[in-house]
């Protein structure tokens, strides 16, 4: 998604009020943006706490401020700066975390972002974008850019099947249709299930939904999805995020609040903080039973 991100920001940078801050990352990716933005492209150095507070102060002067780094360096290191300086003042800083989930797989646990949106959504005013496909970036950048509130974009790598026609961006999209259970996946993970689900007979094929915007209160579930949940014997949520505070628990609370019963619930989630061995994103998804084969096994009992 980095190329699409860069292209979208280059187009947007015609706005003279736009400022881009990077925590010394973006080599071999963001040079075109640096070239067009000049002094408004600021490498803030290896100093993320300062970068976030600087971003807050710039946003307070009505500048359109984007902040970029590897995901954990955007939200975990400077968490208090996000909390106090950005969200307490409801400043529309746009935080971009590259490599959400296990995106930096074999680079080790310090580079994993499997607790990002759960933590950030405890804060006031902030919303989260989890683009599913590379093609989503134009729309996500446009929506985040026009937001008057703080935003976090969890970037990953779109993984649609070969030849797949990516549906137009929307906060909620149904990617497969059938008479099977309802599956909701967060971000790019959703794309990894399409091919396996399409191979199933329609009687067993899940209704797969991808969610790209949180919290749910700001991006309510479509009526069609709610109807499917109410009619389905089971609901499955898959997310590259730890269980505690993740989308699964947010969804169940939301459904409970509105009185929607869920008969059986399956939760596939990230477990890698407990691992001792590391590998690619694909490897780590498998270790967490988040891969398509594990999903099919989980659905057998659904």
């Amino acid at each position: 998604m980095r190329k699409q991100l860069c292209d979208a920001l280059v187009a947007r940078s015609k706005n003279p009020e736009m400022v881009f801050l990077t925590g010394d990352l973006g080599f071999m990716a963001l040079e075109p943006l640096q070239a067009v933005m000049g002094s408004r492209f600021i490498n803030a150095g290896v100093a993320e706490q300062n970068m976030i507070s600087v971003a807050a102060a710039l946003a307070q002067q009505d500048l359109e401020v984007w902040v970029y780094s590897i995901a954990p360096f955007v939200y975990a290191r400077p968490f208090e700066q996000i909390r106090n300086d950005i969200t307490f003042h409801n400043l529309p800083v746009k935080l971009i975390g590259n490599g959400g989930g296990y995106g930096y797989g074999v680079m080790g646990p310090t580079h994993h972002a499997i607790d990002d949106y759960g933590v950030l959504l405890t804060l006031p005013n902030i919303s989260v974008y989890t683009p599913v496909f590379d093609e989503d970036m134009d729309a996500v950048i446009a929506r985040a850019g026009s937001s008057s509130h703080p935003v976090y974009i969890r970037m990953g790598r779109g993984e649609p099947p070969k030849g797949y026609v990516v549906p137009t961006y929307a906060p909620w999209r149904q990617l497969t249709h059938g008479n099977g259970p309802v599956v909701i996946a967060v971000g790019p993970l959703a794309g990894t299930y399409i091919e396996a689900f399409e191979r199933l007979l329609v009687e067993r094929r899940p209704n797969l939904w991808a969610v790209s915007e949180l919290p749910i209160e700001q991006s309510p579930l479509p009526d069609e999805l709610l109807a499917q949940i109410e009619a389905s014997p089971s609901l499955c949520v898959a997310e590259e995020h730890v269980r505690c505070g993740g989308f699964g628990s947010q969804l169940l609370l939301h459904l409970a609040d509105r009185g929607t019963a869920v008969r059986r619930f399956h939760h596939l989630y990230a477990r890698a903080h407990h691992f001792e061995r590391y590998g690619s994103q694909t490897f780590l998804r498998r270790q967490s039973a988040l891969d398509a084969d594990s999903m099919l096994v989980a659905l057998e009992g659904a």
């Binding site: 600087v54 102060a57 002067q61 106090n84």
Partner: peptide
């Protein structure tokens, strides 16, 4: 302009304001 009290934030906020 900003809520402060957790030490170590103010100089960055001031630097951002000055840069802005």
């Amino acid at each position: 302009p900003f809520a402060t009290g957790s030490l170590g934030h103010g100089l960055s906020l001031a630097a951002g304001t000055a840069l802005g």
